[in-house]
Simulated assay, not measured.
Amino acid sequence: MPLVFQLDPPGGPALRDGVLALWADVSNAGGAVGFVPPVTTEEIRPEWRKHLRAMAERRTRLLVGYDEDGAVAATAFLTYNTHRLMAHWVWLYTVMVHPKHQGKGHGRELMAAAADAARTFDGVEAIRLTCRGGTGADRFYGSCGYKEVGRVPGAIRVADGDDRDDVIMLLPLSR
Rank of each mutant, 00 (worst) to 15 (best):
K50T: 05
G133S: 04
A73M: 09
G150K: 03
G12R: 11
A114E: 02
Y80D: 05
H98S: 08
D163N: 10
P38D: 10
Y93C: 05
Y80V: 09
D67M: 09
D122G: 10
A115P: 14
P2M: 11
R157P: 03
T82D: 14
V39G: 00
L62Q: 01
V26P: 02
E57W: 09
A159Q: 08
D163H: 13
D162S: 09
Q102G: 05
G150Y: 04
D17N: 13
A73L: 06
W89Q: 06
V97S: 01
V167R: 01
G34D: 02
F121T: 06
A21P: 11
R128E: 02
R119K: 15
Q102V: 07
K147D: 12
R16W: 02
M55F: 06
E43F: 00
Y141K: 01
R157V: 15
G150H: 07
H51W: 15
V167D: 01
G123W: 08
T120A: 07
R84W: 12
K50A: 09
K147R: 09
L170M: 11
R61K: 12
A118V: 03
A73H: 00
G31D: 03
M169V: 07
G150C: 05
L110H: 04
R151L: 13
H51N: 12
R151W: 02
T75Y: 04
L63Y: 04
G150I: 13
M86T: 07
L63D: 00
A29Y: 04
T40S: 15
V33E: 01
R151Y: 04
P13T: 10
D166M: 15
R45T: 13
Q102P: 07
Y146F: 11
G103L: 15
A71P: 01
V33R: 00
G133I: 04
W48F: 08
T60V: 05
G136F: 05
V124I: 13
V97W: 00
F5C: 03
D25F: 01
W23D: 02
V90I: 09
V90Q: 02
A29V: 07
R139T: 03
G65Q: 04
P13R: 14
V152S: 11
G18H: 00
E43G: 14
T135Q: 09
R16C: 05
P172Y: 01
R59E: 15
S27T: 09
M1C: 15
V4R: 10
G133F: 00
G34A: 13
M96W: 03
G12W: 08
G11M: 06
H88M: 13
M96D: 02
A54Y: 15
S143Y: 15
W23E: 10
A137Q: 06
M111F: 00
V36M: 12
F35D: 07
D165V: 11
D160N: 14
G161H: 02
A56K: 09
H101S: 10
A159D: 11
V167N: 02
E68C: 07
S143G: 10
R45H: 12
R61A: 03
